[in-house]
Amino acid sequence: MIGKRITHRMADGVRVPGTWRHAFICNGGTYFLTDLFIYADGIVDCWDLVTLDEFEKKLRSGWVATGLPDGGSASAHHLGRWTFGEPDTWLTPELLLAEVRDTIDELNGRPDSTGRCLAAVEVFLAEPTEENRSAARAAYLAIPETVRHYALGDMDRKDRPLQVLVAGPGGRLPDWPDGRRVSQEAYDEAVAYFGEREHWRAEARKRVPADGAAHSFAPAVKLPHSYPQRALERPDKRCLRNDYPAPLTVDGVTYPSVAHAYWARSVADPEARGAVVAAETGAEARTLAAGAARREGWERTRTAVMARLLRAKYAQHPDLAAILLATGDATLVYDDADSGFWGDNGGRGRNWMGRLLELVRSELPADEARVG
């Protein structure tokens, strides 16, 4: 189960999503408490990037440890060392491997063992033959024992209705105590439970979020790094870049572009500021500003300054504002070879410029929405 443990790694310029979980690695006789990083492409990092088949070998060899010996030496890197005393662990190599396989399915948006079980249960409920029950039972037993309790997402009943349904009247599951069998009454209650559950799910599917869709309906728009020299006869997404020649006036001063305005406002000396404003291009403005003393506290105010300049640009250029609005609710990915703060830069930057452009875009229709 991934939960909130989200990470990624870059592979050939591609962002590969992943997650992590705690584990012990046995190296040189010491058991190190560490993390396994599991990625959507089936790669597992257990102090080395390995394929799923190689990871299984690491499990079988004891490198990734699922058994902890009494008296064994343990370590958490740079935090402390201790000795196991009557350790209790419920994992086996088979269970951990099954959980990792499920995690990879989940990272890829595919049904994991729980999803496959619930799909088999739906088939059985639609056509309750013994053959379909047998398939549902096999799918249930294929769920790692450590996660079966969570299969229905019902923290009160756990997976008990599921157990009863796949066992059937008079039936039992392999790990049940001798003599325990499913009564007809218990079976009928389980069938009724699944009927109610389907009703709840149907109602949930029909529910419309109170504030509209939570996800973007438009594909992401990338604004690659470029150096526009002159205004385009037919402006396109290149006009959304800060160094695009779109003059703007702020506090009585007219700047050739947002880049000129931003860099001019970053410098402390008025004379240097004037030279930045007069620079031939946005790139030259940046170079001049880089050689001048920065205003005190600039790093704390720069995002607010940029937001104000962007609002001015699009308020004073309705044609460019229309191009920004035409991106819908797309994620704006702004590349900036000079800054990992403003640019996305292949997932390595913070993309603050893209985020501010999205903010300004959301404000553009505000006049139409303003009430009283």
Rank of each mutant, 00 (worst) to 15 (best):
V50K: 12
A65N: 04
T19G: 11
S73C: 10
D70A: 08
G28D: 04
L118F: 13
H22N: 00
R81H: 05
L79I: 03
V123I: 09
E54F: 00
R60H: 04
G109T: 03
H77T: 08
G13R: 08
R81W: 07
P69C: 12
R110Y: 02
N108Y: 04
W82R: 06
S61F: 01
E130V: 01
E56Y: 09
E54L: 00
L107T: 09
D105H: 10
P111V: 01
I104A: 10
W20Q: 09
T19E: 09
F84A: 03
G29Y: 08
W47A: 15
T34D: 15
G42A: 01
R9M: 05
A136M: 03
L95Y: 00
E56D: 11
W82C: 06
E54D: 13
A98Y: 09
E86C: 05
T51F: 08
P87T: 01
T83E: 15
C46P: 04
A65H: 09
N108E: 04
L52S: 09
D70F: 11
G62D: 05
L52N: 09
L59C: 03
L68K: 02
G109V: 04
A126M: 02
V44Q: 13
A98S: 15
L68W: 07
A135M: 05
F37A: 07
G72C: 11
T34Q: 13
A139K: 02
D48P: 01
M10K: 04
D41C: 10
A23Y: 00
P17N: 08
D102I: 12
R137L: 00
T30S: 11
F55P: 00
D70G: 06
N27H: 05
G62R: 02
L52V: 14
D112P: 08
I38N: 09
D12R: 07
A98F: 14
G80V: 00
R15K: 13
E99S: 02
G42E: 11
A135G: 07
R110D: 07
A138V: 00
N27E: 14
E94M: 06
G109D: 09
E86K: 10
